[in-house]
Design a protein around this nucleic acid. Structure first.
Lengths: 217, 217
DNA sequence: CACCAATTGGGCCTTCCGACCTATTCAGGA
DNA sequence: TCCTGAATAGGTCGGAAGGCCCAATTGGTG
């Protein structure tokens, strides 16, 4: 029984490489999608056993596409592929129902094994993500409610403040945006400076960018 | 006469895909590097005809690695691979002496052709980058002297100020570092704000990071 | 229950920052 | 040669930023 596989990645080079590797590994590559919307559509039309889905794609990102495919009930197992080992995205992907989460640092052999295991109902992950993955799964098992992405360095509110500053807001503007006083914003910032080992907002935002806490534009 | 090819990309999946594709296309893949430093080292040891080099790599980015390979005089032609069609990076790559600049949206066939053409001394580029590439080449042809990375948005001095700020310096510290008065630093900053459409140092540094003017640690 | 972290807010103070004004020197292009 | 741009430096001024004190509430955790 060959595994029917759908590839979803916006980079043709990677798709072609995967198609060859996966075909050689004995999988039946039934289709390729170059964005999230196409992936969802093809998943519905082709009902593949497994979908190898890139996280970053145009139109609809991989995690959202994964969610929609799982929710649509076609029964496809989704293995996420990502460029970077991002804890946040991993957590999102697991919550979306992904059956695997691999970085593109993996070998084709590892990918092939992951696809095979996903097809058999197992959940697979990159070795370097094993621990956090297990933590996430444990949390899902123990208390099935959504947890605000564990191990946060700064609090939720502080993260909001940081993002607004990164978006170009001044202290008064952040206060207005969040409906709190300027003093509270300053307090949050002072707390952030301690946690991120920064001494001003510039360093705090840069550190947050390095740590992936905030996104730049 | 087969073309001897070196692959440099930090993503093993992509490297393996490329190795297969390029081998099948008749190239002799003599080595693989997973970061910039390794790429430079292997280029020296193996003297490949062509190096397929990713732009974003650990240790030493592809553009810098390209520059060093070209400067080392091993005679290898460097074809850059990139995730995104970035004008700035393209310009840097061309200045660094790259023989080609392709996005990973290209097909393996296109990559193979690009490698072949690069080996023959031609310069190749992604279709969507053709125009800007030609403009860049024209500039290089018209005045062939070394210009300190022309089209600079901010001046050399302003760039130094920006980098120091990004490194965590305050205005007095920047002034001390550059042996100028605080007032001059402020003047530079005011000029930077205009040029980068920023209203404070935080925004200026973030914009500079986006534009690749400064590096974050 | 007691404690802790998060979130909210206050006051006071010093320093920094950015806007706006001017000015000199010097190198390079029209 | 004149003019522009870069780099240098000064002043003033209002607002922003950051340090350092403080306190109230809320929601968990031990």
């Amino acid at each position: 029984m060959t595994v029917r596989l759908l590839l979803a990645d916006d980079h043709r080079l990677l798709r072609e490489g995967l198609r060859r590797s996966m075909s050689d590994a004995g999988f039946d590559v039934v289709g390729e999608a170059c964005d999230g919307v196409e992936a969802i559509q093809l998943a519905g039309e082709l009902s593949p056993d497994v979908i190898l889905m890139d996280v970053t794609m145009p139109n609809c990102d991989g995690v959202e596409a994964c969610r929609q495919v799982i929710d649509s009930g076609v029964g496809s197992r989704v293995v996420m592929l990502t460029m970077h080992a991002d804890q946040e995205v991993l957590a999102d992907a697991i919550r979306a129902g992904a059956a695997g989460y691999l970085t593109k640092d993996c070998s084709t052999r590892e990918i092939a094994e992951a696809v095979r295991m996903a097809a058999e109902g197992d959940t697979v992950l990159s070795p370097q993500l094993a621990r956090s993955m297990l933590d996430e799964v444990r949390k899902l098992d123990s208390h099935a409610e959504v947890d605000p992405s564990q191990e946060r360095v700064v609090s939720k509110r502080e993260e909001e403040v940081l993002q607004l500053i990164a978006d170009g807001c001044s202290t008064p503007e952040v206060a207005a945006q969040l409906y709190i006083s300027q003093k509270t914003v300053k307090n949050h910032l002072a707390s952030i400076y301690q946690k991120l080992d920064a001494r001003d907002r510039t360093q705090a935002v840069l550190q947050a960018v390095r740590m992936g806490i905030v996104s730049l534009s």
